[in-house]
Design a protein around this nucleic acid. Structure first.
Lengths: 135, 135
DNA sequence: AATCAAACATGGATGCTATCGACGAGAGAA
DNA sequence: TTCTCTCGTCGATAGCATCCATGTTTGATT
């Protein structure tokens, strides 16, 4: 991880489909050299993968919300975490310090979806919902 | 946006550098056809861009935290939001309903960085920090 | 039902890209 | 020095993205 690797990562973060040749021109390296560096960044675990930035609103998302969850029994926190984080609407699910033990970020296409999730999540604890107004 | 577009997006979400030819084989379309669909998804705003999934721990991140911020005067919420979200350590910054008006997610390389951010953020309001224990 | 236009897919051609292997330069250790 | 490891370049090759011309399908209109 030197300065060149950082610049390569920066460029891939801006556009993960950028060609190694173009990146190479920018960092003054040949395309194979960039390719080898990227491969190493993958192998060494710096880069986990390449993904999409989506416009969720375009896909029908109408509501985004944080849901604090006060788990009934602390012994089930881990179980709850490992299940909830794979739910469709869930973007993030973090175990946190403080009163509430889990913080869930989820996107919904309707309030009905939100209600459904709240009902489903109630088996683990007491949820407190906070709607995202803007970001 | 039909079923094929959805499958293309699914595949790109798994690996944004996947070739259109490979995707085409999977959705039973030629490479140019996939390319045109992707281009349209970009132009119509469904796809915002292509990005990296990074292993932040490898980059030195030691602490992740949610910081609730109770803004002093409600008139400055928007200002605070639009500044804080561009800070280096900040991953997300959302205006939310409820007592605290802003919820900030940030990654830190040290507790010192966390403290610095807390001091800096105090100009806008009263922060409450909750450390992420696991995800 | 017939017709037309728009949207969409295909296939071939072309220039780029990714990646391999061979090779050489430079850094650091024995 | 000499060995070795890392990291670069270059040339070759196979595969890829994209353009254009050509069909095909869809579905809306008359």
């Amino acid at each position: 991880m030197d300065a060149i690797d950082e610049r390569i990562i920066e460029m891939l973060q801006a556009n993960a489909r950028e060609s190694f040749a173009t990146i190479g021109k920018s960092v003054d390296l040949s395309a194979p050299a960039v390719g080898k560096r990227v491969k190493q960044l993958e192998e060494k675990g710096f880069i986990l993968g390449y993904s999409l930035r989506l416009n969720h609103e375009k896909f029908g998302v109408k509501t985004k919300a944080y849901i604090n969850l006060k788990i009934h029994q602390s012994s089930t926190i881990k179980t709850a975490l490992n299940q909830i984080k794979y739910w469709n609407e869930v973007q993030r699910c973090d175990r946190i310090t403080g009163e509430d033990s889990l913080l869930v970020l989820a996107y919904f296409k309707s309030n009905k979806e939100l209600i459904t999730l709240l009902e489903r999540i109630s088996q683990y604890g007491i949820p407190t919902t906070r709607i995202i107004l803007e970001s």
